[in-house]
Nucleic acid binder design. Structure first.
Lengths: 354, 354
DNA sequence: GCACGTTGCTAAATCGGGTTAGCGCCCGTA
DNA sequence: TACGGGCGCTAACCCGATTTAGCAACGTGC
């Protein structure tokens, strides 16, 4: 059927040396161990001609390192989010010749246990524990056996694990600044959460942090939040009803929606009330979901940097794998959330610069 | 640091038997090889008490089977598509105790080569070669070394590899039938491709097949396609312009959009012309992209069964791994595309039943 | 009393590479 | 001439499992 793989023994025989010598040359330790130039060349040539590739399974058995990392998330299927995060992780791993095992737990602790076990059985060199929406998680104790990093999640109990998260507070500031820079000072409303720091959907770390950033940046400019509507779930229909509710009593000049799906609902409500984006009402949002650039006018939004989050997590994991000292534990890495300036924000009418 | 893993030698010692005996019992071959009940029980108990788990890396070296399959796709990040496909593959694999290596090639042949090599080096038991949109692909020759399945792709040259694809022709029929069942017989227009079988975006297998199904079902009912607009790329903006163009000259009663993103553009164009969905114009589409259920009115669409495609691919792969005979090669498996009946289709006005 | 079969288990080889310990050989020196 | 020491390479063991070949002990038949 398929021709047997070329092994190091084949290379050694072809070069007329022992397996040991071949191993030393191919692992680059030939120099320090005084292998002659001649033998080194013979081995390298034989390896090249036979297209020798080391069997990573074998190396894994002997050295315990499989050049493989496990990526465990609660779900990989929800929205494009996961895809980009995995893509970032994949590429960062590939840069170092590592591969990724993907697993999803669906939030099921038992599944998670089995999955971690399966990865353990395959001797992964490290683990990324990812959550698809920012939240605090219970870190399974089985994780301690191998270097690990939390992605988009914070540990419920303090652990020595580093975490990689989007910088949501700064994102909140960014969203507010987009409006401030356009000249908005009055009639700024929030859709999705607020105005108080406790007016957030349950368990949503992102909501709290975005709110903190928004209030801080507005406050620093002496601008007051005119009002807010909380959404129990950040879906278009709740954005629609919350915004309709708001428009029944107020005339906003700008909306900060807590994510793009809410903004989608808000667009519809504004349309229902005959209000135009951005001429009558500016809208800024969070996430940069694919629909943000499909909406008309295109939505200005502060992007969740999924790709960068994935990359960063793997980078941090490699740092973790590489170091032997035990200092500097539990560090939290924040990844910046960039503003995608599009068409939904304009200076308030009757307040044009000039 | 982490306590050393329990090995079979530990189990054997605890049970007071040889490693051979432990292996025989734990692999279930104890019975046929006449290991006594007593010894069997001792081994099983020891394994249980020590929480023994076989080291799959070691097994992989010895037996050549790693309980791992490689999932190679051109991209995993585009739309949610990939996520669900991977999820299906993941679960089908998990049911059999297998894990998945994920890799993406970005359509780069060199990257693909390296990736397949890396998977080969890790002794994967099988490969899924996935494409994120249905198309024909060049099958790399390196694939022949291990069982493999094409997912959402057809081989350019005939190969013995089985393929798993959505049943696009039947989906085309389904879309047409949705309109026929609602009573539509006139003013049915296509947006995205058609009316001729050559009027399709380049390389799009899906376009051709959907078109075939649509024309067949309409034709069987004696209904003529009133007209069509081709879109060079199936994005909202092209749907918008194509539909605007159509509405400049015609007054459709129903639109079959070739995917949901096109339908999104079509909704906007209809709105621009003051036409209501579904009262004035019914709309049916393909893919069941997440936005389909966010659009107002919610879009009736024929779903791409990503999850099922992923599952099916892995199921077929296991069948491939399991069989030794070489018959029945290159089979094409079609996965049904279910209709998601929502709100965008109604009987034509002035043509109400009753 | 001896050959032969069964029963119940184990020693040892194997997978493919990494690593340690050490073996010949040549050279220089006393 | 014997000895020490660097040089260049290799034998042999190890990782953790599977698998082949075979060994003791016991019973049975003649």
């Amino acid at each position: 059927m398929s021709p047997r793989r070329v092994t190091m023994a084949d290379v050694a025989k072809a070069a007329g040396v022992s397996r040991t010598t071949a191993s030393l040359v191919l692992s680059g330790r030939g120099r320090e161990l005084r292998i002659s130039q001649d033998v080194e060349q013979r081995v390298l040539r034989a390896a090249h001609e036979l297209e020798y590739r080391p069997n990573i399974v074998s190396v894994g058995l002997r050295t315990g390192t499989t050049r493989t990392i496990g990526f465990v998330s609660d779900t990989v299927a929800t929205s494009r989010l996961a895809g980009d995060m995995i893509k970032g992780a994949l590429e960062a791993a590939r840069d170092r010749g590592f591969m990724l095992f993907i697993g999803e737990t669906e939030g099921d602790a038992e599944l998670e246990r089995l999955l971690l076990q399966a990865m353990h059985d395959r001797q992964v060199d490290g683990l990324v524990l990812a959550s698809m929406f920012t939240r605090t998680i219970e870190v399974p104790k089985a994780v301690t056996a191998v270097p690990a990093v939390l992605l988009n999640a914070l540990p419920k109990q303090p652990t020595p694990l580093p975490a990689v998260l989007p910088d949501e507070v700064e994102a909140g500031r960014s969203a507010a600044r987009v409006l401030l820079d356009a000249g908005h000072r009055d009639g700024v409303y929030l859709i999705g959460a607020g105005p108080g720091l406790h007016d957030v959907p349950s368990e949503s770390v992102a909501a709290v942090e975005r709110l903190v950033g928004i209030r801080e940046a507005l406050g620093a400019a002496g601008v007051e939040v005119a009002g807010a509507r909380i959404c129990p779930d950040w879906q278009p229909e709740y954005g629609l009803t919350a915004t309709r509710d708001l428009l029944g009593t107020a005339r906003p000049r700008a909306l900060i929606c807590f994510n793009d799906r809410i903004a989608m609902g808000a667009y519809q409500a504004l349309d229902d009330f005959g209000l135009r984006v951005p001429a009558d009402v500016s809208v800024v949002s969070f996430d940069d979901h694919p629909i943000a650039s499909w909406m008309r006018p295109q939505l200005t939004t502060v992007a969740l940097p999924h790709y960068e989050l994935g990359r960063k997590a793997v980078d941090v994991l490699f740092a973790e794998i590489g170091r032997s000292d035990t200092g500097r534990t539990g560090q939290v890495h924040r990844v910046p959330m960039p503003v995608r300036a599009r068409e939904s924000v304009k200076p308030p009418a009757g307040d044009l610069p000039g």
